[in-house]
Design a protein around this nucleic acid. Structure first.
Lengths: 133, 133
DNA sequence: CTTGCATCTGTAGTCACTACAGATGGTAGA
DNA sequence: TCTACCATCTGTAGTGACTACAGATGCAAG
């Protein structure tokens, strides 16, 4: 019944797809609590796996680690503050959309330049000329 | 007729929209050559302005500084190697498209979660639950 | 017995800046 | 003349989120 911490860091890494170095890094900066040790070795339980999986999923959505910290607190403390969570998600969505708009612009310009470059121009490379203005 | 280096770093910054600290940083890492000095003060000429503008434009397309270095060399040395330039641009375009695809996925998930969160759920925050799996 | 594996600690490197602290020199106003 | 302000200078450290190493330790299998 007890969580029985038996999972070594390598297996945690495999289970979550998170680099071992990254796991230790998360511990160092307080995203993950220091786990039980047997001798020098970290051992994790299922709660540890769940916590790291949570972090990974939040990171995959682009939430910065500071926000992940807050999300973890809210997830722990019961979800009374759905409003706050939604606000953070909306902020993150706005970030993502802004970055996507940037990338769209870059892709459009790059696409044009690659095309112009392909249409073998006499004299100079149109891409370099575009950058030189 | 001589380039007559009279532009101080502050004006170069204004002309190119590039932060002063960034200009000095570019100099330190060899992206920009060390300019003429009058006393301790850097003075730039129009060639310096053009070079930095080139760098800025390349950076706006997301080219990493190492690639910008190469582009500068190619732009200087006459544009014999349009092929190489096009290859770099294609690589960069692929990067941009891949990142955009990532952001699309994030935006889709975040959009769904924000929406679910908005539809006031009884019990728990659907967003936190989704992260907790 | 030694080879290999997993783990450990601690530090430094990545990328592209950005932010200071503290010094210097010149001009302009009171 | 004093002082306030401005731009510039050098050098170092901080950012975010890792990643990469060096070098030690301990255990089990061949």
């Amino acid at each position: 019944m007890a969580p029985s911490s038996t999972i070594p860091i390598g297996e945690l890494s495999r289970l979550t797809g998170c680099n071992i170095e990254t796991i230790r890094y998360y511990e160092r900066i307080g995203i993950l609590p220091a786990p039980v040790r047997y001798g020098r070795f970290r051992r994790y339980d299922s709660a540890g796996v769940r916590r790291l999986a949570f972090v990974r999923r939040a990171r995959e959505l682009g939430f910065p680690l500071d926000t992940v910290r807050t999300l973890l607190l809210l997830a722990e403390g019961g979800s009374h503050s759905c409003d706050q969570v939604r606000q953070m998600a909306e902020g993150q969505l706005a970030e993502v959309l802004a970055k996507r708009a940037d990338l769209d612009r870059m892709a459009a310009v790059l696409g044009d330049l690659v095309e112009a470059c392909g249409a073998g121009d006499a004299g100079g490379c149109p891409l370099l000329e575009a950058l030189s203005d």
